[in-house]
Design a protein around this nucleic acid. Sequence first.
DNA 1: AAATAAAATTAGGTAAGCCTAATTGTGTAT
DNA 2: ATACACAATTAGGCTTACCTAATTTTATTT
Lengths: 219, 219
Amino acid sequence: MTSLAEENYLKAIYKLYEKNGAMVSTSALAETLQINAASVTDFIKKMAAKKLISYQKSKGVSLTEQGRLIALNIIRKHRLWEVWLVNNLGFKWDEVHEIAEQLEHVISDELIENLDKHLGYPKADPHGDLIPDAKGRFIKNSSKPLLECTKGDKVKFTGVAEHSNSFLQYLTKSNISLGDEIVVEVIEEYDNSFQVKINKKERKLLSKEVVKNLLVVVM
Amino acid sequence: MTSLAEENYLKAIYKLYEKNGAMVSTSALAETLQINAASVTDFIKKMAAKKLISYQKSKGVSLTEQGRLIALNIIRKHRLWEVWLVNNLGFKWDEVHEIAEQLEHVISDELIENLDKHLGYPKADPHGDLIPDAKGRFIKNSSKPLLECTKGDKVKFTGVAEHSNSFLQYLTKSNISLGDEIVVEVIEEYDNSFQVKINKKERKLLSKEVVKNLLVVVM
DNA sequence: AAATAAAATTAGGTAAGCCTAATTGTGTAT
DNA sequence: ATACACAATTAGGCTTACCTAATTTTATTT
């Protein structure tokens, strides 16, 4: 059995590894988990003994296959619960993270399979993050930051690369939602801001910071 | 904040107090929580210091008003989750207890209010147990054990007085469900078994053990 | 290569929530 | 009133998951 703490460490290691593509450092883990670095060193030694991670002293950690599967399972649960919270309980996409952080630790495979079925086997959560299947497999899509598009591109908004409440609320306020069609009309060379047309109607100016964090697929 | 352990103690004390109508003994608590009596003594002292319970050494404990409200809130959450698991996720009434035991500890008032709304403000869980409102108030009904009925009574099956899986599964197997109409046709004096007619169709013989645990309201 | 800064580890400690073994209290039968 | 049985408590200990302070390792600058 994996404890609550172990699950949180595994999830954090998975995410940091995805983000940086390298061994995860003690300090990075300490920072994300808001736990003292000395405590982290302590804990990862125990996790390594349990073969959940591989640990090279002073060099960092990475997930074993077993640890990776557990991490993906937690992520799967988190994202399914987020779908439920938004689609069925009426929460906004910036309100669900904390609640899903609790729900993700509920243990019952049958519950999760029934939930998945109940939700119609969603492929992504309310922020466009892909939901792995029960065996930890993703059905990858070809999304990329809007920043990488060029003038004239017609794309679909499929996810966010930044999950802060302030960014999510900015998008809500700006009336930009998952699934929207975006056409790139002008790219301002000077500051990399984009002038776009949303759903063939509204014309909007988006800063570099914003287009960097909007994930889209070319239509 | 109340810890997981405290919530479980409060719930157990509430239920034992309801059942026996008296101060709850250390040994009764130890038995229901499957925790050593010495640990219970230890823990209830700390809970008393926090004013969650009142504790008289060697005499037992009872809930303070604060403790009672927390206990009722946990029970409310447990029962709402059970309704959801049965009505929306397709679980059977004998499959939901363990999962609800985990879900009941998720903290978010907004979640529970949204869930309650989503479920249509149910008054009872899948076993007929009443669901207290957010302020810990019950809307009592007038149910009693079928055993207390007399020949000719026409009643509605509204709940169970015993929650064991074996009893629930016996009822399922016997095709007896919450909401069924039951007419008492014959009471066998010798062994207190009841001959009943269910939903104006099926005739059934129910042992004393069973009629003791079927809760009904007279129609 | 030496000095310094930053990161990681070690050592020792704490609180929560449990345990066993020993002791004390309480209630019932003689 | 005394003895016995059982319930409750006390005392001392353990594990998990954290902490701070001190030390060591690694990386960076001069």
